[in-house]
């Protein structure tokens, strides 16, 4: 369990660094995929809602620290993302690739739209002179939808990697139990 936690922490560090530095080099149509969202969804599907919520919280918090305009915004968004995906799926069909793609697609749209709407609402509430007109159609068509497609594609290798790492730990656990 300890080794698993270390792997978890190191992975999170790597994910945050990759996401903020290298990933914007592979922009397609000006959109960067969000592997942080993909990983949170993956953990929620693989290990359940609590683990998903914790992973979402930590990854979101890292995003808050590195880029957030305030502390806690992405942490909360990530927490609920992991929680809801974990509750909805209840570890069913977790090794079916289509389920993963479908979940990533839908969750990305819901997650990114909530981020947009909550942010705009917050701005409207607390600093109306800086707020913008809502442009949901643009937000969906030009940002959320392409990102969802991008995330879905990228979720396949990431999820495969996560399953492989998980299996290795489980095998290690089994071999320990033998003796």
């Amino acid at each position: 369990m300890k080794a698993r936690n270390i792997v978890f922490a190191v992975s999170i560090f790597i994910i945050v660094v990759l996401q903020t530095t290298v990933l914007h080099y592979i922009k397609i149509f000006g959109i960067t995929p969000n592997i942080m969202v993909v990983v949170v969804i993956g953990i929620a599907l693989l290990f359940g809602n609590t683990q998903g919520a914790i992973a979402g919280f930590i990854l979101g918090f890292c995003q808050d620290i590195t880029f957030g305009k305030m502390l806690g915004f992405y942490a909360l968004a990530g927490l609920y993302l992991g929680l809801v995906v974990g509750i909805v799926n209840k570890r069913l069909y977790r090794e079916n690739i289509l389920v993963i793609i479908f979940f990533t697609f839908i969750s990305t749209i819901v997650y990114e739209l909530s981020v947009y709407l909550v942010h705009e609402w917050g701005m409207h509430l607390f600093s109306p002179e800086n707020s913008n007109n809502l442009d949901i159609l643009y937000a969906v068509r030009n940002i959320t939808l392409p990102e969802a497609i991008y995330n879905s594609i990228i979720s396949v290798p990431i999820y495969a990697l996560m399953i492989r790492i998980n299996d290795r730990f489980e095998n290690a656990n089994k071999s320990i139990r033998k003796y």
């Binding site: 996401q19 903020t20 530095t21 990933l23 914007h24 000006g30 959109i31 960067t32 969000n34 942080m36 995003q63 590195t66 880029f67 305009k69 990114e112 981020v115 947009y116 942010h119 940002i143 990102e147």
Partner: peptide
Amino acid sequence: VIAKDPGNWFDIFT
């Protein structure tokens, strides 16, 4: 510039 905002909504860098 060492890092850029990972999301697609904002334009912040470090």
